[in-house]
């Protein structure tokens, strides 16, 4: 969906993005992670041509972005930023309607879309549509920011530290919300973050950047298995590698037939969560149930420990 082909951007002769290439498959989430000054935000802003590259090309659905007028390109791509960037003089509904209005949608269609998105983000339209941004809490502002980015049903969504201003509890909720929405619309998402936990939680693929260079791009498991450089290894953390590894898969793949006593674990939980439950209960084995409570089998501590061994 997004092809980045040896893209370079220089400021004052210094390359802030240096010959970076990778591609993001349709309907997946790619996370750009790195320290501040790594060039990740500049790279993101080149995808929607807020910044134009000096060398290389960026293709979206096979089309070179430089062939499309910038503002038209950006109307097709959702864009959400840290601190949300909501227009303070417009109501919540007007903020969300920004791009549809630029695209000259019909009034009724815009209203329906706004109501749909507000409901989706658990903001009652009757209550929130006519409020101004400053009347919302931080978490609500952030959700409106994402809703605005999604209003014109873009195929692609770019997010720059979208949850950076939220406290850890709200951030977790917002991340889960984003995953649900991504599943629902099948949007291709590129997210910039400096939080490696967020990267592992959200990313189908992760791109690690440092000093303008792309150090490694691949599935989260690849980063754990074969970190390309010491920098990547340090970033993913040697100390909690096994736990990260377990966090990448659900227990569906390790359930075995049979029964066990104790508090059951949901089938949709990650292996990491299951391990924690086993350790906390001091049990060798615990039962697994489906979402509706039906018994599906059991999971063993031993099996999970086996999963945490460095993959070959």
């Amino acid at each position: 969906m997004i092809d980045i082909q040896s893209v370079t951007k220089r400021y004052g002769g210094k390359a802030v993005v240096d010959a970076v290439s990778f591609s993001v498959p349709e309907g997946s989430i790619a996370v750009l992670v790195g320290t501040s000054g790594s060039g990740k935000t500049t790279l993101l802003r080149m995808i929607n041509q807020l910044v134009s590259q000096d060398e290389g090309a960026i293709l979206i659905g096979g089309e070179d972005t430089r062939g499309i007028p910038g503002h038209e390109l950006r109307r097709r791509i959702g864009y959400a930023i840290q601190g949300h960037g909501l227009f303070p003089h417009r109501t919540v509904a007007e903020n969300i309607a920004t791009v549809p209005r630029l695209l000259k949608w019909e009034r009724s269609r815009i209203d329906a879309k706004v109501a749909e998105l507000l409901t989706l983000f658990q903001l009652d339209p009757a209550l929130y549509a006519d409020r101004y941004p400053h009347q919302l809490s931080g978490g609500q502002q952030q959700r409106v920011g994402v809703a605005r980015a999604l209003a014109a049903e873009p195929k692609i969504l770019l997010m720059d530290e979208p949850f950076g201003a939220l406290d850890p509890v709200l951030r977790g909720t917002a991340q889960d919300e984003l995953l649900a929405i991504q599943k629902r619309f099948g949007t291709t998402i590129v997210i910039v973050t400096h939080d490696i936990n967020e990267a592992f939680h959200l990313g189908d693929t992760i791109a690690v950047m440092d000093k303008g260079k792309l150090l490694q791009y691949g599935h989260p498991i690849d980063l754990l298995k074969t970190p390309a450089t010491p920098f990547v290894e340090g970033l993913v953390g040697t100390f909690d590698r096994p736990f990260r590894l377990l966090s990448l898969g659900t227990i569906a793949s390790v359930v075995e037939p049979g029964d066990a006593p104790g508090e059951p674990i949901g089938i949709d939980k990650t292996q990491q969560e299951a391990l924690a439950a086993l350790m906390w209960a001091g049990a060798q084995v615990l039962p697994v149930t489906a979402e509706d409570g039906a018994k599906l089998g059991r999971v063993r501590l031993e099996t999970l420990l086996g999963q945490a061994i460095r993959p070959q």
Partner: peptide, 26 residues
């Protein structure tokens, strides 16, 4: 604020639209 003019541009407003719809009203 930079975040606001950035958001205007990022949402596909032309320079003229950013001016009339965001900068001037603010």
């Amino acid at each position: 604020p930079r975040a606001i003019s950035d958001a205007a541009k990022g949402n596909g407003m032309t320079a003229l639209q950013t001016f009339w719809q965001v900068e001037l009203p603010l």
